[in-house]
């Protein structure tokens, strides 16, 4: 049997997003774009062409005025643990799950742009570079690009990396301090850090000391399309049944509300 919690032979980085705290402000998206050198096109309104790693989805409870409610789902890559759909279809081995971090990589220089992974991903977490990044001569907008993330060329797929370079950054810092292991919070993603509502928690799901592993067991925790069996490492929290119900497809009567359950 797989040992879920125990001495860490490697880590399993994951995220818990509290949808009750999320205000839908979009700072996570902007922080992600700024951190990871996402290219911006003059027209970003074609959402099938717009490059986003972290994307906000707006949902409503569908009720009439004045009982309408909106809520938001911030959606990074789920870094699926099991039969990772994109990894299993990639013909170029441009994406793989690192068993020691649980992070699903994406190597742009290896990607051949077939977009099979995009078709396979149940979460639409991957976007394709139809064009080269828009950095026209004379504007000088390329000056804000970070050297920690390699800018992409056209014809490749990209996706959220859980800010893998921040893991390397944290490790590098730890090495200077003669440490090999990271403390909780030393490695967090840009969206986690940026969220003004502290709605995102990031850490090692395998480490019972980490807040994420505790939150992931909350009765209000759920994952998107959980029953596909992809074991996403991104969990959501919501006390609202209508929000939780949107996380998967249910037959009538199948969904079990937990509004009566007390939080642990």
């Amino acid at each position: 049997m797989e040992k879920k919690h125990g001495p860490a032979k490697g880590n399993s980085y994951g995220m818990v997003i509290d949808l009750d705290k999320c205000t839908g402000c979009g700072t996570c998206m902007v922080a992600c774009a700024a951190e990871n050198n996402l290219a911006v096109r003059p027209d970003e309104s074609d959402k099938q062409r717009s490059i986003t790693w972290m994307r906000l989805y707006k949902v409503t409870n569908g009720k009439d005025f004045p009982y309408t409610e909106v809520s938001y789902f911030p959606r990074p890559c789920m870094h699926c643990d099991h039969h990772t759909p994109c990894v299993s279809v990639c013909p170029a081995t441009a994406t793989e799950t690192d068993p020691h971090t649980g992070i699903v990589s994406q190597i742009y220089t290896r990607c051949i742009g077939c977009r099979y992974c995009m078709a396979a991903c149940p979460y639409h977490a991957r976007t394709f570079n139809w064009w080269d990044g828009y950095f026209p001569k004379g504007k000088g907008i390329e000056r804000y690009l970070s050297p920690e993330v390699s800018p992409r060329m056209r014809g490749v797929v990209e996706k959220c990396t859980f800010c893998h370079h921040r893991l390397m950054r944290a490790k590098t810092q730890a090495y200077t301090e003669d440490r090999r292991e990271l403390e909780e919070g030393e490695y967090i993603t840009a969206c986690t850090e940026a969220c003004p509502a502290q709605a995102i928690t990031f850490g090692d799901l395998k480490n019972p000391e980490h807040k994420v592993s505790r939150l992931a067991k909350s009765p209000y925790a759920f994952r998107l399309l959980e029953r596909l069996g992809t074991e996403p490492k991104v969990y959501y929290l919501s006390t609202k049944d209508w929000v939780r119900k949107l996380g998967d497809n249910y037959l009538p009567g199948e969904f079990k509300p937990v509004s009566t359950v007390k939080a642990g």
Binding site: E96, D98, H100, T101, S105, I107, E148, V149, H164, M168
Partner: peptide, 8 residues
């Protein structure tokens, strides 16, 4: 030798 160890 995991891809992301040496790629960014």
């Amino acid at each position: 030798n995991a891809c992301f160890v040496c790629h960014k």
